[in-house]
Design a protein around this nucleic acid. Sequence first.
DNA 1: ATAATTAGTTAATTAACTTGACAAAGTCTT
DNA 2: AAGACTTTGTCAAGTTAATTAACTAATTAT
Lengths: 417, 417
Amino acid sequence: MNSFLWPTPFQNVKNINKHAILDLIRFTPGGISRVEIAHRMELSRAAVTTIINDYLTTGIIREAESRNGHSGRPAIELEINPAYGYVIGIDFGATHLNMLAADTSTRILAEVEVAVDIQNGPEACLAEANIRLQELLLKAHLELKDILTIGVGVPGPIVSEAGMVVAPPIMPGWDHFPIRDTLQKQWGCPVSVNNDAELGVLGEWASGAGRGERNLIYIKVGTGIGAGLLMDGQIYRGVSGSAGEIGHLTIDENGPMCACGNQGCLEAFAGGRAIALQAQQAVQQGQRTQLVEIRPVESITAKDVAAAARRGDLLSQRILAQAGAKIGIAIAGLINMFNPGMVIIGGGVAQTGDILLEPMRQTVQRRSLPAATRATRITTAMLGRRSSSMGAVIQALTITLHQVAERKEVVAAQVTP
Amino acid sequence: MNSFLWPTPFQNVKNINKHAILDLIRFTPGGISRVEIAHRMELSRAAVTTIINDYLTTGIIREAESRNGHSGRPAIELEINPAYGYVIGIDFGATHLNMLAADTSTRILAEVEVAVDIQNGPEACLAEANIRLQELLLKAHLELKDILTIGVGVPGPIVSEAGMVVAPPIMPGWDHFPIRDTLQKQWGCPVSVNNDAELGVLGEWASGAGRGERNLIYIKVGTGIGAGLLMDGQIYRGVSGSAGEIGHLTIDENGPMCACGNQGCLEAFAGGRAIALQAQQAVQQGQRTQLVEIRPVESITAKDVAAAARRGDLLSQRILAQAGAKIGIAIAGLINMFNPGMVIIGGGVAQTGDILLEPMRQTVQRRSLPAATRATRITTAMLGRRSSSMGAVIQALTITLHQVAERKEVVAAQVTP
DNA sequence: ATAATTAGTTAATTAACTTGACAAAGTCTT
DNA sequence: AAGACTTTGTCAAGTTAATTAACTAATTAT
């Protein structure tokens, strides 16, 4: 028997089984039958039947084709009804904006990705988001009134109750700006604002590389570096929402200055801006590289470095390899401390592939406890640049679907004979 | 509204409220009344009454004196009945063995502490534990048959279902030894084996410096260095039980060799054995220190260094300060990654006090994100060397009390008139 | 065609909880 | 000091989510 340990009294949540069954249906690819639900939840088939009938009448789930097993009556697979409604997932990166439109069954209907600098401040960025949302809706053949909920990700520490960021290192002008309230008023539907790395781990867990893994770390390597933590099946945020902020781990006390004010932070070694800066300095020093073609020197970006590295530019490859090794140090620490089942590397810089990942893996191997490393697989994000926006979709669906699940079914008035 | 997120179907646990109420009573100092329970659990007073009456008839709890508030009928405080029974908590350190006897209300009745080297292997250590248990029982005026459950802590990664350690870095000869089964046979009562740092965080949370804190890290600095993690009110072990094993974080790739085979591990800088080794080498090099008095040089221990430092020995102070700074690096990492509300420093070496702690605090301050550090208090263990054995007591009580709570109350047969 | 097997439903029962009334035990007001 | 007020705890009746056990439904195996 596993030991009990609920040091904190259980938060009062009604209809636990109803909600759990809904999630079981949502997150089981290919559908799941009533018996299987009963088995997995340790409930009677009768109990499952009544709950499922309730969901069927609301239209939130539907019966799919029955998959015939080996013998006996074939089971009817249950799945989320895609036609129930639609949601939007938005990811504000430091330099990009990614938007997805999805139906209730998490199928992507349309995507929009544009370059937007988050340093332009909240008003400009949210206005841009509004324009792009219209574009996305047009592509998906939807209207704003069809949208049930919108999930939003931003690259900074969130106070989720307030729907805003506090003291974000790479979002100047956004501190305490009421992101959720502004968008909710602008669009007239529920909006949920979350940290992008957190949404990344959610997205990869629900429909990416981390399916079924209860202890998962998603590392977003972009302009900033942050980690989203899924621990024992729950997203972990810490006491003030800044858990997983690994971008400002000190890697070398005598390292380069970081935007946060400290010295030798991981981000100052391996963040997108740091990679660009190193390349620019190398060009100015006259080192041999394909990057000299880019003018002015200050316009060289991490993307350029990645592209040059893929074309065989040695300097670019060396810069990325060094960045990978530094990230590896942080990951080794994460693995020793968290002992996760999987680490997923995502974000713009990570799309460089093995040039960054190979030195990273080597550093992890060399620096972490064999006992922990053996249990941990390290992969790249399956959803690529869509990890976080997909997480935002999942989050939006979670809100919508569980709200429906809470609603008591209105039974038609019975006429006494 | 907080977002739902139960990605994994809820584990089937019956009588959640019954168990939660029991824990609420256990972990509320000074008792708690029925109304207050109803309020905290969001249950009706009537529901609480029936559950409480059930517990009262089993004798697991009792009514204490009523505390009169301001007006109205005074509430009756409920508390665990100390006379319900007794448990034992045992902590195997690397060099010491600490045992506590406690009643059901966590009051300590007796303590035994002896020097035992864990390197003597399981048979010798468990035999020694048996001898000392008799001594403890004698002191507490108890007999073995009075003991309900025994909790045991060991300094290595545990497979809790199996009750044994796997690949422990500092427990030669213990790998896969059936600790729980051996002790259970030896003593004839349920035995629970857990990691010592894990028990440390439990002990400090329940009756030490970490009361009421849902996100807590306990760091045990002794021969080995390990952390126990309490996250969102639950002990976190990771996928293979090695979460919190910070002793083998790489601090400096070119640092001294560690017993684990890697180079520059935290333990190789700041563990008890490393501190002793540094002192021995300094003496051999003829450095000025009070430690020259100890002969042979090889017998100098970390305890000697701590004692000399307190007496003003500069070399010893420098060694400890350097160790503190290295531990600070690891703690800064923990704070950035976990964003805990509190970090508690315990274990033998930590009892040195400010000589170790001050440089540690400074390093943490310098190396971690202000946003996270501001939310984190850093303290020393309130229970001192008893953190883990107290945790073992708590764990033993958890098992016993919740077992009683599971039992259906046998209602006396009703006689129909 | 019949037996065996597995899936889902129905009706009766059970257990945990809520609701609302009420008794119990105090303080506060005049 | 008497009554008003307040708060705690209990009781009885009703509600709801679940179980149990029998039953129907739809398929494969013989």
